[in-house]
Structure formats: C-alpha cells, structure tokens
Design a protein around this nucleic acid. Structure first.
Lengths: 157, 157
DNA sequence: CATTTGTTGTTCCATTTGGAACAATATGCG
DNA sequence: CGCATATTGTTCCAAATGGAACAACAAATG
C-alpha cells in the first residue's frame, strides 16, 4: 500500500497535553493487550485471573482485598477470579482464624506452574517493546519507573 | 489502624519476572483509573469516547480506523463512540469522496472545549504520580518513554 | 473487465466489567 | 458492655467490551 500520503500517527506523542501519561499508557497497552490476547487464547484466563496468579506467586499469603489493592481492581472482580481459580485448584483458601471476614489465599504448585508459563508471554513482549533501548538506557528507565511507582504506592495508601 | 504487621505490597516491584512491564502498567493504571473515574462521573464519558476526543484534538482529520490504530482499541468500540459523540455534536463526520467506505472525522469547538477540560484531569494526576522525580529525572524518563514508544509504533505497523 | 481478496464501518451477541447493596464480622467509642 | 461505623467478600444488575459476521466499497490479479 502507498503510505506516502498517510498521516503520521505518532505526532500525538509530542503534542498531547500529558506526554508522560500518554506514553506510559501507550507502552502499557502495547505490552498488555497482545500478551493478554495470547494468554486468553492459550489458557482461557481473563485478566483478573492471571493478575491473581501473579500476586500470589510473589507473596506467601494474601487476602482478596490485598490483591485488589495491589492490582487496583474492584473487589468483586477479584472475588470472581478467586472462585474460578479455586475451582481449577490453581490456589487454595483457608479462613483467617483471627478475622472471620477474610480468608487467606495461597497459590498451589499447579498455579505456580501456570504463572511461570504466562510470565514468559509478558517478558517476551516487554523485551520487544523495549528493544530500542540499550542496556544503560533500559537500566535508567527501570530505576526511574521504580522510583515513581514506589511514590505512587505511598500516595494512594 | 495498626499496619506494623502488614505485608509490604510493593515488594512485587522487585520480584516480578517482568519488572519494566509491571511498573509501566502499574503507573498507567495509577494515572488512568482515577482520572477515568472522575471523567465518567463529571462528564459521563466512557474511555473510548475521551480517547476519540484526544485523537481528534491532535489531528485535523482522522478516519475511525485511524483512531482505532492509534488507541489500539477494536473498531466497533470506536464506532460506538463516534455515534455518541456525533449525537452530542462533539465532532462532525463527512464522507470521503475518494473512498466510499470511510468517513472523515473532525472535532468541533464544543468537542475541543470538552477535551481541554478533560486533559486537565489527566495532567494533574500525571503530575501527582511523577512528583517523586526531579526535573532532570523527569526529562530523562520522558525521553526514554518516547524512544520506546516510537519503536513500538513501528514494531506494530 | 471479471473475479478474488482486502478494507471500512456497523450490528449482533456473549462475556467481562464495575458500581451498589448486602450479610457477616470487626473496630471504635460512649 | 452496647451501639454506631468500617471492612471483607459476595451477589445482583446494568453497562461496557470485544470477537465474529456482515454489507458496502476498493484494490489486486489474472
């Protein structure tokens, strides 16, 4: 196709009123959408479900509420994901003896194995998207992202 | 509340298998979710609708397909947004004489005014989230994000 | 020029999503 | 203790979402 006459769709990166927010969101979408599509196709998981897996892979035990806070998703979404993942025995739940409202969630070996497969999809896509950066640039980006993320976590306590 | 015994929910920033992807997505969510909630509450717009406004604010004329490409959303989502925004006369549509399949979309002054209000919400939240970075760090981050974003746009052509 | 293939915008439909209300439990305060 | 307020997980319901099929048109190929 002749694209010589096409609009340059990347101009908006510079003209948008909120450049950092736009670029961050653009990159997040560029990573998550394709990976999410593949994960759904290959494993039948929806987003809240693999997020649940990811959280439980990195903490020994969490409540549903904590998963919701980490992932910034509504509690009911997480609640549904918990039921489906319990059903497939990707995780297990035990009542908290100290607080009758909440339950403790733990990932099972089967769940961990699934997470390991899934995280490969996300790592691969991450590396594709960041391929334009050399090692030093990437390290700088990673450090700045962490600084901002830690601040943001405190901000929204 | 006594949090001395709570799990540190930010540990996952370091232990996750895809740190850059996780942090980028975390920041994107931290910016977009609250701003999106406010925009919905104050203006009744859903995400595809303000995305449409943002795109048309930065290009003289676009087709629905181009908006879908810029925003990585399915065409039908954009199609619906176009109808609602036409109805509210936030934009106008004219058939393309050179191609009977597509129409050219343009934002109206009313639409531009709405976008100006909305972008304030996103800019504000962006600045809150990035408040931990000094001017130099922020400039570095912005430049690295742009480099990655431009590469990604080419990657997915 | 005829036929096949691709593209655009739309509608249909099933699924996902998230706000609101709810019951059960916990906490704060008089 | 007893009552008001907050929190957790859940269900309900309306809305948003995205894949698939479709009609209209365009481009490519023989």
């Amino acid at each position: 196709m002749d694209r010589s006459n096409d609009t340059d769709l990347t101009r908006i990166f510079d003209t948008i009123e909120y450049p950092e927010a736009y670029r961050v969101t653009y990159l997040a979408n560029a990573i998550v959408f394709p990976a999410y599509g593949e994960i759904k196709r290959d494993f039948g998981l929806v987003r809240a479900e693999y997020i649940l897996l990811a959280c439980l892979s990195h903490f020994d035990v969490l409540t549903a509420q904590e998963v919701a806070r980490i992932s910034r998703r509504p509690r009911n979404t997480i609640s549904r994901a918990v039921h489906r993942m319990l059903n497939e025995s990707y995780l297990e739940r035990s009542p908290d003896p100290a607080d009758g409202r909440q339950s403790k969630l733990k990932i099972t070996p089967k769940g961990r194995a699934l997470h390991d497969e899934i995280s490969g999809y996300l790592s691969r896509r991450q590396d594709e998207v960041l391929a334009a950066l050399n090692a030093e640039e990437r390290a700088t980006l990673t450090a700045l992202l962490k600084k901002a993320a830690l601040h943001t976590a405190k901000l929204d306590d």
